[in-house]
C-alpha cells in the first residue's frame, strides 16, 4: 500500500484533508492515527486567526457549505501545543499553511521546516482576500509560480501545492506549481457556492458565499485531478467528496498517487480508515499486489461503444 509523494513515503495512500480533521487530536479517540497514510492538519497562519462570525456552515444536497474563515491557533501555538501530541503516533504529519503575502508563506515554511515531527508542507493558495485585491491567490499562474518558488527556497521538506478549483483552466495553475519546484499537487479545495433561506430571504452563511465540499463536488474534483495528472509529471493527491473506498479508487485509477478524505469524517469519524481498508480489500480481491500498479490505469475511451 506504500506510496511516494515527492520523497515522503507513506504507508498507505489515504490522508485526512486539512480543516476537516482538526489537529488530529479531536479524532484520535475514534481512529488509530498510526494507521493513516498521513494527517494533514488545519490550515495554519503566522498569527492566530479568529475566523468568520456564525453561522459558518450549512448542509446542501449531498454536501455542505462552510465559511469557517480559516480560524486557527497560529503556527507557533500549533508547534508548541498541538504537535507534541501528534509526535506520539507513528504517522506522517503534514502542515497546511496559508499566508497573506509571499513573504508570509516563506516564513511559515521555514518555521515548519525547523520543527521536529513535520514531514511535509501543504500550501493552501486558495485563500481569498490576500495581498493585492480580492482575487484568489491560486487563480493567477504568476502568483502561484512565485509562492511555490518562495516556499521551495524556505524548506527542504516536500512541498505540496494545494489548488483551488475556482479557476478557468486548472492545468495552467498546476504547471506553474510544477515549474516553481513543487514536489506534489493536491486538489481540490472547496468550490465557491451559496445557499439562501427563502423564508427570511437571507443567505444561510454570514459571509453570503462559502466553500462547497462533500460528495456533491466529487465528479468535478475527479475531472480536475485527471486533467492535472495529464498535465504534470509530479505526484497528484486527489481530494473532493471521497466518502468510501470506491470513490478513492476512482481517483487512484484516474492517476492520483494518494487521496485525502475530508467532509466524510463528519458523517463517519472513521472515514479515512474505512476508505483505506476498503482499498486494501479491493486490491486483494483484484490481485493487485502493489497499489502503484493501480494508479493511472484508466482506459480512456474504454466506455465508448464504437
Amino acid at each position: 500500500m506504500k506510496v511516494d509523494i515527492g520523497g515522503l513515503v507513506l504507508k498507505n495512500p489515504v490522508m485526512t484533508a486539512s480543516g476537516t480533521f482538526g489537529y488530529g487530536e479531536e479524532y484520535s479517540s475514534y481512529v488509530d492515527l498510526a494507521r493513516l497514510g498521513a494527517v494533514v492538519v488545519k490550515g495554519l497562519s503566522l498569527k492566530p486567526r479568529r475566523g468568520n462570525p456564525p453561522p459558518r456552515i450549512m448542509e446542501t444536497p449531498s454536501g455542505m457549505l462552510n465559511a469557517v474563515g480559516l480560524e486557527n491557533v497560529g503556527i507557533h501555538s500549533f508547534i508548541e501545543t498541538k504537535l507534541p501530541f501528534l509526535r506520539n503516533y507513528d504517522v506522517a504529519v503534514i502542515v497546511n499553511i496559508l499566508g497573506e503575502t509571499i513573504g508570509e508563506y516563506a516564513a511559515l515554511a521555514s518555521i515548519a521546516d525547523a520543527a521536529a515531527g513535520i514531514h511535509a508542507i501543504e500550501v493552501n493558495i486558495s485563500c481569498p482576500n490576500v495581498a493585492k485585491g480580492g482575487i484568489i491567490f491560486g487563480a493567477d499562474p504568476d502568483q502561484v509560480l512565485n509562492v511555490t518558488r518562495a516556499v521551495r527556497k524556505a524548506t527542504r521538506l516536500p512541498v505540496i501545492m494545494k489548488l483551488s478549483p475556482n479557476v478557468t483552466d486548472i492545468t495552467v495553475i498546476a504547471r506553474a506549481a510544477e515549474e516553481g519546484g513543487a514536489d506534489a499537487i493536491s486538489l481540490i479545495n472547496t468550490l465557491r457556492g451559496m445557499s439562501i433561506d427563502i423564508h427570511t430571504r437571507t443567505p444561510h452563511l454570514c459571509t453570503v458565499t462559502g466553500g462547497l465540499s462533500g460528495p456533491a463536488v466529487k465528479p468535478v474534483a475527479l475531472r480536475m485531478v485527471w486533467e492535472v495528472v495529464n498535465a504534470v509529471s509530479i505526484p497528484v493527491i486527489g481530494i473532493g467528496g471521497i466518502m468510501e473506498a470506491s470513490d478513492a479508487l476512482e481517483f487512484l485509477i484516474a492517476g492520483a498517487t494518494a487521496v485525502q478524505v475530508g467532509t466524510a469524517h463528519y458523517r463517519n469519524p472513521r472515514a479515512a480508515l474505512d476508505v483505506c481498508e476498503g482499498i486494501e480489500r479491493y486490491c486483494v480481491k483484484n490481485g493487485i499486489p502493489d497499489i502503484r500498479d493501480l494508479i493511472g490505469t484508466l482506459a480512456a475511451g474504454g466506455a465508448c461503444r464504437v
Partner: peptide, 17 residues
C-alpha cells in the same frame, strides 16, 4: 444551539462568540 457538522470540536463550524 448552533449548526454543527462534526460535533467533536474539529470542524469549527459551531462557533459562538
Amino acid at each position: 444551539e448552533e449548526r454543527m457538522a462534526c460535533g467533536i470540536g474539529a470542524c469549527l463550524g459551531c462557533a459562538v462568540e
